[in-house]
């Protein structure tokens, strides 16, 4: 699975939001897009998701042009987008349901693993914020599409839950080896999780810099305080402010 974004530009009315953006996500790679708010990160997601049509450029998934076509990627939005009238189990099965086959057994197994085994038949508003996002991520993983788009999935969580969720996400992701494109505005989060970080500038968004992050996997919490990590953090911060 390879995603290629080829020289994408997009304007709304007269305001140009994206200017000549190109990058790729390789098979099994974890790529983060980082940039200030209003840098068109969500627009990039909506373009990849096929909700918007770019003014120029193409989006290619495994040699197939998917520009302005929906249904090719698995998506996890910012806020919990669990359906309030569906139980946790029915929610995580939704992605499969839209495409055809449902695999309830696998869903149960993954929910069990995620510590949601006791709440499979509960409704989303009985869950904590972290639990909701876990369920939303499992829904994205269970969906048949091979590329995961995660749009600031932890931005609404408190700092403690957030770190737990990042560790949890890494452990699950390392096991399933899916390609991930991750949006965040948190440098620590991007560094901790990614193989590659793409820094965007705002108005219009262009790619300022791309970094390949060399930290070995599996990664643990200690990495966050290592000299190497702090050094990378300085480099990224400088690149963002440049």
């Amino acid at each position: 699975m390879t995603l290629e974004i080829q020289t994408i530009s997009k304007s709304f009315d007269t305001k140009q939001v994206l200017d000549d953006i190109s990058f790729s996500v390789n098979a099994g790679e974890f790529v983060s897009l980082i940039g200030p708010s209003g840098s068109g990160k969500s627009t990039i997601f909506h373009l990849i998701g096929g909700l918007l049509k770019p003014d120029h450029g193409d989006i290619v998934l495994d040699d197939q042009v998917i520009t302005n076509q929906t249904g090719h990627i698995s998506y996890m939005p910012q806020q919990s987008s669990l359906f309030p009238w569906r139980t946790v189990l029915d929610n995580v099965l939704l992605g499969q349901e839209l495409q055809g086959e449902k695999d309830t057994e696998r869903a149960m197994m993954m929910l069990e693993k995620a510590g949601l085994g006791d709440v499979v038949h509960a409704y989303p508003n009985q869950l904590s914020g972290g639990m909701k996002q876990r369920a939303a991520f499992i829904r994205a993983l269970l969906s048949p599409q091979s590329l995961l788009l995660l749009d600031e999935p932890f931005s609404a969580l408190d700092e403690f839950t957030r770190l737990d969720m990042q560790k949890w996400l890494l452990s699950i992701w390392e096991e399933y080896e899916r390609s991930v494109l991750f949006i965040t505005h948190n440098i620590d989060e991007a560094l901790f999780l990614s193989d590659k970080i793409i820094i965007l500038s705002a108005n219009p968004a262009i790619i300022k810099a791309t970094f390949t992050i060399p930290f070995a996997r599996p990664r643990s919490e200690e990495l966050l305080l290592s000299a190497e990590f702090l050094d990378w953090k300085r480099r990224l911060t400088e690149a963002i402010q440049a």
Binding site: T70, S74, Y75, P77, S81, L98
Partner: peptide
């Protein structure tokens, strides 16, 4: 949000309505 999610995941018009 839910509408966008459904669209991105490739939901058809009837899936959008019923689900």
């Amino acid at each position: 949000e839910l509408f966008h999610y459904m669209k991105m995941m490739g939901a058809t018009k009837s899936q959008l309505f019923w689900k």
